[in-house]
Amino acid sequence: MTETATLADEADEADIDPADLAIATTGLTKRFGHQTAVNGIDLAVPRGSVFGFLGPNGSGKTTTIRVLLGLAAATGGSARLLGHDVPTELAQALPRVGALIEGPAFYPFLSGADNLRRLDSADRYADPATRDQRVARALERVGLTHAAKKKARAYSLGMKQRLGIAAALLTPRDLLVLDEPTNGLDPQGTREVRSLIRAVAAEGTTVFVSSHLLAEVAQICTHAAVMHVGSLVAQGSLDDLRGTGARVVRITTPDGDLCRVELARLGLEATGPVGEVTEPTTDEVAVEAPLADDGPAAEDIVAALVRAGVRVRSFDVDRPSLEDRFVALTGEGFDVAR
């Protein structure tokens, strides 16, 4: 909880104008009976960002998306989508939003292209005169041109996923909401989706992408938020999220105990107990110690260690990985369902 407060303060300092937010929610809450699926979240998705919406399965990501897109009514709080109130002004926002929600869905008896035509005709702002052209372009962008005339029931899971993304790209969008876009895709397909997201973002579209697999989206995101059991536990730019973790010194050496003693002398507390100096062993050990921002410089630590006779085989000053941070925030592995 303190984490959220810290990050919220940072957001205040950055002084983000609400008009610059593609998605903004205040205390957004959704309950199903007694179960609270989304618990008072304050999302702030800047325009032009690629925003990773992360959290384990069942942490409330899809429910949040359903509320944002007007599919479900919020129990409490408010939300704005592209500056329009949800749900009263949704009709103005939705034509500028492309979405993939909880997996793709199609009419199995229609071809891929006909499925896209069908969805496009539901959008009353989509011009029928350019429909065939836009359908062909969307299919091309996801690499499905060859399967355009194939019935959707004959599509593989990965092809359906890509067709779903094509549907989200039928008209120019200001915001793309992609719920688990890499589900069912092989590593190659995942890479293709990532490069597609990069290309869409490069055109200025805000991309809001949810995932339970941090590694799949971390490398394309500029911002991220982490959900845990219906609450938002962290939010901010990727640098902010990384920066809030303390630096760590990581040394591999055969002289583990000697290293620990020497680190302690420098004021660094190695993880694990500092033991007696014993005969050097041949086994290499990894020694880790948190390094405060006002701690000694890295080169001084190495010099001191070497002077003391520690055979340093590798030395590294590192921030904890995002994965470590998120596991710490959610208190569990990323894949774990509630």
Partner: peptide
């Protein structure tokens, strides 16, 4: 049942119109 309802609604088809 097909799941296409959510996509028609976010298109947006409009609930009354649909």
């Amino acid at each position: 049942g097909l799941g296409t309802l959510r996509y028609l609604l976010v298109a947006p088809a409009g609930r009354l119109r649909l």
